[in-house]
Design a protein around this nucleic acid. Structure first.
Lengths: 108, 108
DNA sequence: ATCGTCTATCGCCGATAGACGATGAACAAA
DNA sequence: TTTGTTCATCGTCTATCGGCGATAGACGAT
């Protein structure tokens, strides 16, 4: 899991990390990219560009954001790039949000 | 549910709505606000301000963002404001993300 | 009526996000 | 070598975010 133990009093530092993860997901283009990556096994940048109707540089930026957030794995392959969804990381984010939600709903 | 039917080809408009919800959650202050709202039953703006070490106007803005996103319910109460987490809406967001994740992991 | 408190909103700002085109590096093919 | 393709990066522009102080409205208390 990603919850280290229990933070000082509550979980303040955690808010930061959860927010950062969610920020990477809070753009329609990036969600669309994730969907496309998971649909087609192999994915180079060009493929996403064709699918998405955005400039190549823009797509590259979004991919970088996803990679930096640890949600997508990157592997250079010849002159192409190989992008692949990191399912585990993605599941982690979902779990973090779920955890936040349940903790918010516990004292309902 | 929030999925209208099935969009044109895939689910493009859906990416938009999911992204919008997640955007509301992608700020540490707002997550902290959610936690605080759920912890203490009643919550006026002032209470959050004291807890959060941010200017009152800033907190009010964050609260507005959460309310606009439908994650927090708002009810004016005298000269105070009553803010309350909308647990169902929050659960919906979590479910949406979980759905996205599983759909991305299905073709693993 | 006046004062103090609590809010929401406005205006302003610096910083960042998101888009693009241009460019150069890396590589395959000719 | 030259050409074409793919990609990341740079610089630029615009819009939005996130913060603040100031302000005005609503209300309770005096």
């Amino acid at each position: 899991m990603n919850t280290p133990l229990i933070e000082k009093t509550c979980g303040f530092a955690d808010s930061q990390s959860v927010a950062a993860k969610l920020a990477a997901l809070s753009h329609p283009a990036r969600i669309e990219i994730l969907r496309h990556l998971s649909a087609s096994r192999s994915c180079c940048c060009r493929e996403v560009v064709d699918h998405l109707d955005l400039a190549q540089s823009t797509v590259s930026q979004h991919l970088k954001i996803l990679v930096d957030a640890g949600l997508v794995r990157y592997e250079p392959d010849r002159q192409r790039s190989r992008y692949q969804v990191d399912s585990d990381a993605l599941a982690d984010v979902s779990a973090s949000l779920a955890e936040l939600v349940t903790s918010c709903c516990s004292g309902r």
